[in-house]
Design a protein around this nucleic acid. Structure first.
Ligand SMILES: [Zn+2]
Ligand SMILES: [Zn+2]
Lengths: 699, 699
DNA sequence: AAATCAGGTCACAAGGTCAG
DNA sequence: CTGACCTTGTGACCTGATTT
C-alpha cells in the first residue's frame, strides 16, 4: 500500500521504455505535442503514417481513458465509416448529445473536405487541449446554426424581435456537451430489466419499453394476445421480464404504474435524483455485498427499508396469486405441469414402508411414458440417436424471443463463419438444439415459480420486519433459544416453545416436493433413463444441492431481502435470518443465499441454466455408479451443449465457462457442508413415515 | 398523412423554381465566420480541390471502395436527381436523423443551387475554428431550405407568424422515401454467402435463408434428410454453402447461432452498424491476405516434438542448480535457458529487504526483451529430444505443422470466400500456431527435467527402500516423530532430531527455484506482460499450484513409485511416504501425487499441456485484478488454442476438454488445501531473508 | 442553463402470403 | 418446398417542450 509509489514508478519505467511509444508520446500536458498531433491528423499526406503511430501510442497508454485516447481510437475506427453512415446532423453539429456519434468523426470529415486550409489554421491555434479545441469548435459552429436560421426566418416572415431572442437562446442550449456524458445513474427498467433511459410515464423504463407503452397508448383499442409459454406469465408477474408477448408486457407496464397521468417532465428534483441513486445502491448492494455483510448484518439487522420503492398499484387482476392474508404464502406449482403422477408417487407411496431404494426407483421408473410432467419432451434420447423429435407443440418452446437479448452476442462475435471445434464430434447441431429445448422446458416446469411481484414481496418483508422488531422487543432475540435448548426443553416437557416443529414440518414437506422436482428434471435429461435405476437414484442424490440451487436461485434472489435480512421461505413463511436458526441451520441458509447470488451473478440464460443443471446432475464422478462411462458420455454431450450456448451468446465460451466451472467447484464444497448439516439437523426430524423420501435422500 | 398534401405542394413549389433564394444573403447575427465558411463551401473554384483532397484522404484511410467513393459518385450524379428523389426533409436539413442520406449531398445540392449568390458572399478570413465552422456552414445551408420554403409559402399563402412555427415542424413528416438505394452495408449471408438482407434470428442471412429458418422453426418435427453428395457436407461445415440440402442448411443455421432467442429487432445501433462495416472490411482483408499468411506459416513450422514424454538430456552444465550433496541426483535446468538474469534477481535481490511486491515485480520486469529465459532455447531442444517415435507419429498426424495448420492448406483451394477454420474471435490459425509454439517452448524450458532414466530411478528407489526398512527397524516408524513433537523438541533443545531442518531448507530452496520458473513461464504467455505488474504477480501467485503441477507431473510420475511408496523429491532426496510428514505434510504430497496421476491420465501432449498451463495462469477469476477483462480476453484466446489442439488431435475436443475442465475444477480445491497447509507448515520456515520470494508467494 | 422527457421518425426484422 | 414481397410491430435516435 505504502510502497505503491515506488511501485508505480517502477511500472511507469517499465512501460515507458520497452514499448514503442511511437514518434511522439502523447502527452496531454504538453501543448506542443498536442498540436502536433492535431496537425498531423489533418495533414492529408501524413495521414496514414500518423495514424498508425498514434494507434501504437494509444495502445501503450493502458489505463488512461481521456480525451486524446478516445480521439485516437476513433480515428482508428473512423476509416470504416462510409459516407452513408454519417448523419447529416453529425456534420451539422447541432445535434445535442449523441453519445454514440462522436464529434471527432465530424472533425475528420470536415478535415477531409477542407484539409487544405484546415491544417493551416489548426497549427496556429492556441495551446488548448485538443479535445477541447474540437468541442469548442463544434460549439461555435453550432451557434452559427440557429442564428442563420433566424436570419432566414426574418426574411421570410417578418418576425418580431422578441421572437428572435428566445429562439437563439434555445438553440444555444443544444450546444454540444464537451465532456463525456455524465451518465446519470438510474435503476434498470422496471419492465424488462434492461438499462433504463429515464423516468417514463411514471416509471423507470428503457427506451423500448417506453416506446412500446407510447404506442399502446396511441392505440384506440388494445387487444394484445398473450403469446407466453408455460411458465412465462409467472415470470412477468414476478419481476422484470422480456419475451415477445405484448399482452404481458403491457400488463406489466400497467402494473408498474405507467400511465398518461403519471407523466413527469423536466429536470429531476433532488429528491427524485436521490431516490434513484438510493435505489441503485440498494440493488448493487444486494448483488454484491452479501458475503461480507452477513456476519455483521446478523447482529444489526434492524435497518428499515428506506429505499424500497413500494409501488402502489390498483391491481385489477389480483386473481390467483393473492397471497393470503397474514402468513400463507402461496406456492404455485406450474399450472401446466401435470405433477399428479409424480407427486402422487412421491407422497402416497411414501406412506408404506417400501425400502428406500425402491421409493426413488418407483418415482424413476414410474414415468416411463409421456404422462409425467416434464416428460412430454423426447424421452428416448439415448445415444445421440435422438430420432424422435416429438417437440409436440414445443415448436416455440423457448420462444422467448427476448428481443434485445442478443445485442451482446452481436457485439462480440465477429466473423465466425466456421464450424466451431466443439462440434466436431458425433453430436449434431440438431441434437444440441433438441436437447437444449427439452431441458429448458423441463427446467422451467420443475421449479417453483411464484407469481408474486417483487414489490409485494418486499412489502411483506417490510411488514414482517416490524413484527420481528416487536417480537424481539418483547422476548429478546429469538435466537437465544438455541436448537439444543429447544430440543431439550421439548423432550422434557413435550411443549414446543415457539411452535417451531410445525415450521419444520412445512420445511420438510417442501423439501419433499422439491425432491420430486429434482427427479422429474433428471428424468427429462436425454439418456438419463437409460441408466440403471440405482444409478439414476445415485445421481439425483449426489446432485441435489446443485440442481435445487439452479432451480431456485431466482426465487431466492426475490425472496431474500438483503436490507432487512428477511427471507421468505419457499413454503411461505417469513423469517429473519436470525431466527431461522431454530429451524434450519442459519449457516446453511446463508450459504444457499450466497450461492444463489453467485449464480445469479453469472447472468445465465434459462437455457444455459437448464443445461448446466443437467450437466451437474449427470456427474459420474460424484458418486459410485454401475455404469459411469455411459453417464460420462451423456455428460459430455451436455457439456457440448453448454459450450454451444455460450459460444453463440458471446462469440466465444471463454470466460463464462470458466466462471461456471469455478462455481461448480464450490458447489461441491457446499454439498459436503450440507450433507453434514442435514445429518444433524434434518435427520432427527424425518423419522416419520411420510418423509421416507427425504430420508432416502439423506442416506 | 394529412399534411401530405400541402407538403407535396410545397415540395413541388420548391423544386419547380430553381430556388433562387433571393439576393438577400443569409444574415446572421455574428455572421462573419459563418459567411466565410459558407463562402468556402460554395466557392466553385475550391470545390474541385476539396473534392480531390477528400478522396485522397479517404483512400488513405480505407482500403475499401465504398464509403466515399459512393459519396463521390453521388456527388456527380446528383444534379440529375429530380425532386422526387430527394426527400424534402433532407433538403430542409432541419430533419433530425436520416442516416442514409449523406450530408454531403445536401451540401452539394445547396451548392449547386446557390452557388451563384453564395459565392459572392464576402469572405473575410478569420482564424477561428475550422471543422466546426464547416459543419455549421453546412447546417446553415440546410437551414436555408426550410426558411426558404417558408418564404415561398408566405408568398403563396399569406401566413401568420404564429403559423410559422408549427409549420416547420409539420413539414418534417412523412415525406415518402423515394430515395435511391440506401443499401446498408451488410456482411454476406452466413449460411449461403448470398447477399444478406439483414440480421435475422441472430445472424446475418439472406432472405431465403431467413425464410427457410422460419419455416423450420414452425415445424413441430424437423426431419430433414440430407441430400448431400459426397464431400458436400464438408463444404457446409467449412463455410457458407448452398445446395438443395435442407438438413445441412438447417444444421448450419443452428451452427451460426440462429434461434428464436437470438432475435433482435428494431433499428440498428450505431454500434451494430459499425460492427457490420468492420466485419465486411475484415472479410475483404482476409480474402486478400489469406494466401500470404498461409504461405509463411507453413514454411516456418519446424517444430516437431509434440508428445515427448520425458526429455532426457545429457547435462554438461549443472551449474547453479546443484542440489544437495549426499545423493547426487541431478536436476537439470534447460541448457539453453538463460536463467541467470531471472534467478539472479530472485535470489540475490531477495537478500535485501525490498518489499515483497517489488521482488516479484522485479522478476517480472527484468526480462523486458525477448532475450530472457525461456525464449532463447528453441533450437537446442529439438536436438536434444531423442524420442524418434513421436516424430513419426507426429508426421503421420499432421505433417509439418504441429498445430494442424495443414488442414487449412488442404482446403485453401476452396472457394475464396471460405474463411479459414478455427477463425474465431479474430484469431487466425497462424496466431494460434504461434501461440502454441511459444508456449510449448516456454513450457519446456521452465520445468525441471531430470536426465535420469527410469530404470535408474526405480533402482534407486529400491535401494532406498531397503535402507528405509532398516531404519524403521532400528528406530521404529519415522513417522512417529510428528512435526509437532519435533518442533517442540527443537525449540526446547535446539537439537534437530533427524536433521530435518536441513531437508526443509532444501525443499524451500527448490520451491524458490520453481517460482522463478513459474514467473518465467507466465511471462512468455502472449499478452501476459501487457498486464500491470500487480496483476501479473497476482496471476502467478494464484496459479502456482496448477502451473507447478503441470510442469512437474511427468517428473512426479517418474519419481514416485507406487509400489514402494518411495518418492524422490525434485531436490534429490528419497523419502518413504511415511517419513515425509516430518518435512512436508504428507497429505500435501499425497495430493500432489494423486493429481499428477490424474493429469497424467489425461494423456495430454506437450503442447496441450503448455497451453493448459498458460490458460490456467491467465485465470482472471482467481484473484483480484485491475484489468480482468484484458486478462480474460487473453485467456479466451488460449482456450481457443486448446480447443484447437484437442480438435486436431482427436477430431473433437468434447470429452477431453471436459475431462480437463473437471480436473481444473479440482485443482482449485487443491490450491485451497495447499494454501492452508502452506500457511501452517511452510510459513514458519521462511522467515529467513533468502526466502522472501517464497514468503511473498505465501502472502 | 442544464436536465429530462413525450413524442416523432423511420430503419429494421418477424411473420404472413402466394405464385412458382 | 422455396423465396419475393408485404404487413406489422420494434426500438434507436432525435427534437422540442418542460422543469428546476
Ligand atoms: Zn424495458
Ligand atoms: Zn443465405
Amino acid at each position: 500500500m505504502d510502497s505503491d509509489l515506488s511501485h508505480i514508478i517502477e511500472q511507469a519505467l517499465l512501460y515507458a521504455s520497452p514499448l514503442p511509444l511511437g514518434p511522439k508520446p502523447v502527452d496531454l500536458n504538453d501543448a506542443d505535442n498536442v498540436h502536433q498531433k492535431v496537425t498531423v491528423l489533418h495533414e492529408p499526406s501524413c495521414h496514414a503514417d500518423n495514424m498508425t503511430s498514434l494507434v501504437a501510442a494509444k495502445n501503450d497508454l493502458l489505463t488512461s481513458e481521456d480525451g486524446i485516447h478516445r480521439f485516437v481510437e476513433e480515428m482508428e475506427t473512423f476509416p470504416t465509416i462510409t459516407s452513408n453512415e454519417v448523419r447529416s446532423k453529425d456534420l451539422m453539429g447541432s445535434d445535442n448529445s449523441n453519445e454514440d456519434i462522436n464529434p471527432h468523426i465530424n472533425l475528420d470529415i470536415t478535415d477531409n473536405l477542407h484539409s487544405s486550409w484546415l491544417s493551416k489554421v489548426n497549427r496556429s491555434t492556441d495551446s488548448e487541449i485538443i479535445g477541447e479545441e474540437l468541442t469548442s469548435a463544434l460549439k461555435v459552429v453550432q451557434r452559427c446554426q440557429p442564428t442563420l436560421q433566424e436570419g432566414e426566418l426574418v426574411i421570410g416572415s417578418n418576425p418580431q424581435p422578441s421572437d428572435l431572442q428566445p429562439k437563439i437562446k434555445r438553440k444555444r442550449n443544444r450546444v454540444k456537451n464537451p465532456d463525456p456524458p455524465p451518465e446519470a445513474i438510474l435503476p434498470p427498467c422496471k419492465i424488462c430489466d434492461e438499462k433504463s433511459s429515464g423516468y417514463h410515464y411514471g416509471t423507470n423504463t428503457c427506451e423500448p419499453c417506453k416506446a412500446f407503452f407510447r404506442r399502446t397508448l396511441k392505440k384506440k383499442e388494445v387487444n394484445y394476445q398473450c403469446k407466453c409459454q408455460k411458465g412465462e406469465q409467472e415470470m412477468w408477474k414476478q419481476g422484470p421480464y422480456k419475451n415477445g408477448c405484448p399482452a404481458c408486457r403491457y400488463e406489466r407496464c400497467l402494473m408498474m404504474g405507467m400511465s398518461q397521468n403519471a407523466i413527469k417532465i423536466g429536470r429531476y428534483t433532488t429528491n427524485h435524483k436521490n431516490k434513484n441513486i438510493k435505489e441503485v445502491k440498494t440493488l448493487e448492494a444486494q448483488e454484491k455485498s452479501l458475503n461480507k455483510n452477513l456476519g455483521t448484518s446478523l447482529s444489526n439487522g434492524n435497518q428499515t427499508i428506506s429505499t424500497v420503492e413500494v409501488v402502489i398499484i390498483e391491481n385489477q387482476s389480483s386473481d390467483l396469486n393473492e397471497p393470503i392474508a397474514g402468513t400463507s404464502y402461496c406456492i404455485e406449482l406450474q399450472k401446466g405441469m401435470d405433477e399428479g403422477n409424480l407427486l402422487e408417487i412421491a407422497f402416497t407411496q411414501a406412506a408404506d414402508n417400501t425400502s428406500l431404494e425402491s421409493l426413488i426407483s418407483k418415482m424413476l421408473s414410474s414415468a416411463s411414458g409421456e404422462g409425467t410432467g416434464c416428460q412430454s419432451s423426447p424421452t428416448e434420447f439415448s445415444q445421440g440417436s435422438s430420432s424422435s423429435f416429438q417437440q409436440s407443440k414445443d415448436s416455440e418452446l423457448h420462444s422467448s424471443q427476448s428481443t434485445g437479448l442478443t445485442q451482446k452476442s452481436s457485439s462480440e462475435s465477429a466473423s465466425v463463419t466456421t464450424i466451431p471445434h466443439y462440434l466436431r464430434m458425433g453430436i449434431t447441431l440438431k441434437e444440441i438444439d433438441t436437447i437444449v429445448k427439452t431441458l429448458t422446458e423441463a427446467h422451467r416446469t420443475t421449479q417453483l415459480i411464484q407469481s408474486v411481484p417483487i414489490e409485494q414481496v418486499r412489502q411483506r418483508q417490510a411488514e414482517y420486519l416490524e413484527k420481528y422488531h416487536l417480537k424481539t422487543q418483547l422476548f429478546g432475540e429469538m435466537r437465544a433459544i438455541s436448537r439444543a435448548e429447544f430440543t431439550e426443553f421439548f423432550k422434557a416437557t413435550g411443549i414446543e416453545i415457539d411452535g417451531r416443529n410445525e415450521e419444520i414440518e412445512c420445511a420438510l414437506n417442501f423439501f419433499q416436493k422439491r425432491i420430486a422436482f429434482l427427479v422429474a428434471f433428471a428424468k427429462s435429461i436425454p439418456g438419463f433413463r437409460d441408466l440403471s435405476l440405482d444409478d439414476q437414484a445415485s445421481l439425483i442424490k449426489a446432485s441435489r444441492v446443485e440442481s435445487s440451487i439452479l432451480s431456485s436461485y431466482r426465487q431466492m434472489m426475490l425472496n431474500f431481502d438483503q436490507k432487512t435480512q428477511i427471507l421468505i421461505t419457499p413454503w411461505g413463511r417469513e423469517f429473519h435470518l436470525k431466527e431461522i436458526d431454530g429451524i434450519l441451520p442459519c449457516d446453511l441458509i446463508y450459504q444457499r443465499i450466497k450461492y444463489s447470488e453467485r449464480v445469479h451473478g453469472l447472468g445465465m440464460t434459462y437455457q444455459e441454466e437448464a443445461v448446466l443443471r443437467a450437466l451437474l446432475t449427470m456427474a459420474p464422478d460424484r458418486c459410485e455408479l454401475h455404469d459411469p462411462d455411459r453417464c460420462a458420455a451423456m455428460q459430455e454431450k451436455l457439456f457440448v451443449c453448454l459450450q454451444h450456448l455460450l459460444t453463440v451468446r458471446h462469440g466465444g465460451p471463454g470466460r463464462m465457462l470458466f466462471k461456471i466451472m469455478d462455481i461448480i467447484t464450490d458447489f461441491r464444497k457446499l454439498t459436503e457442508a450440507e450433507n453434514t448439516i442435514d445429518r444433524t439437523y434434518i435427520k432427527p426430524h424425518i423419522m416419520k413415515e411420510k418423509y421416507s423420501l427425504l430420508r432416502e435422500f439423506m442416506a
